[in-house]
């Protein structure tokens, strides 16, 4: 087995045994039950509303998991001192970074897929219609977006303390969610440096909005063309590759402090 796969497997075991995912799954189930029992704006019990809320929570929980899981991987190794026992084996820093990346990305994607399944299951149980082809596309693109979020967390954590890396990754991803899609609109009202800054942000930050297929699924617009899905996924994979490279570059020459557990 390739060494980075062994390291990725350890990330899976850690996340599963820390029980963060179960807590979020239970929380999602509880929130969906509350949504279905309350009658907000006369929408109580509407299956489409439950699916809408369920997928929104899947994005929020996936975001939280991706940033927190990825940002703590490398700093935890140094804090525990286990980075020394790992790198004293024929494990390169590249193996370590790739293993951590693959492990955190795959486990967060799997957890998010389970959130989608729960939301879709609840919707179907309430008699709602779920287009499974569109749902599959939504899960796939969401998984790619999670890879970008994990990559950001990992890159920042290659040089920063885990908490600082997570905080920075939350800020950057939130800005990418909230500011980037509206940047062209803001740019028309700005001139000079502010417009240039917005332009830079628009091109530099990831465009998470292109990975978000919630509306298609909730309003039953049917699946998107697979070529479009493929192009968006290719954009996401290119970002992931860049972030992996940045993380490895930052970690390659890092000098570790000696840990005292």
């Amino acid at each position: 087995m390739m060494r980075w796969l062994v390291i990725a497997w350890a990330v899976w075991l850690e996340v599963i045994r820390r029980k963060d995912v179960y807590v979020l799954l239970v929380l999602l189930g509880t929130l969906l039950a509350v949504v279905l029992s309350l009658n907000v704006f006369g929408l109580g019990g509407t299956s489409r509303y439950a699916l809408d809320v369920g997928l929104l929570l899947a994005w929020v929980f996936g975001w939280i998991l991706a940033v927190t899981v990825a940002s703590r991987q490398l700093p935890d190794e140094e804090e525990r001192g286990t980075v020394f026992t790992l790198l004293a084996k024929p494990v390169t820093r590249f193996d370590l970074v790739m293993g951590k990346y693959a492990g955190s990305w795959s486990v967060v994607a799997a957890a998010t897929a389970s959130f989608y399944l729960l939301a879709a299951g609840v919707t179907a149980a309430r008699g709602g219609r779920v287009d499974f082809a569109a749902l599959l596309q939504a899960v796939l693109l969401h998984a790619v977006a999670l890879g970008v979020m994990c990559g950001l967390g990992l890159w920042f954590s290659a040089r920063l303390h885990g908490d600082a890396a997570a905080a920075l990754a939350f800020v950057v991803t939130a800005a990418a969610f909230l500011v980037v899609p509206r940047a062209p609109e803001f740019m028309t009202r700005q001139t000079g440096l502010a417009a240039a800054g917005l332009m830079l942000l628009y091109h530099l930050l990831p465009h998470f909005e292109v990975f978000d297929m919630r509306r298609r699924v909730v309003h039953d617009f049917g699946p998107a063309a697979w070529t479009d899905v493929g192009l968006i996924a290719a954009y996401g994979f290119a970002l992931c590759a860049c972030l992996a490279l940045l993380a490895w570059t930052a970690f390659r020459r890092r000098r570790f402090s000696r840990s005292v557990p």
Partner: peptide, 28 residues
């Protein structure tokens, strides 16, 4: 090479057997 660092720590979420198996897999 085998290395035991000063004040060693290990993946606490693993069992002792799992840690040794994990280490062994890193040597293929």
């Amino acid at each position: 090479i085998g290395y035991l660092p000063e004040n060693p720590d290990a993946y606490r979420f693993l069992t002792g057997r799992e840690l040794l198996a994990f280490s062994g897999r890193l040597f293929r």
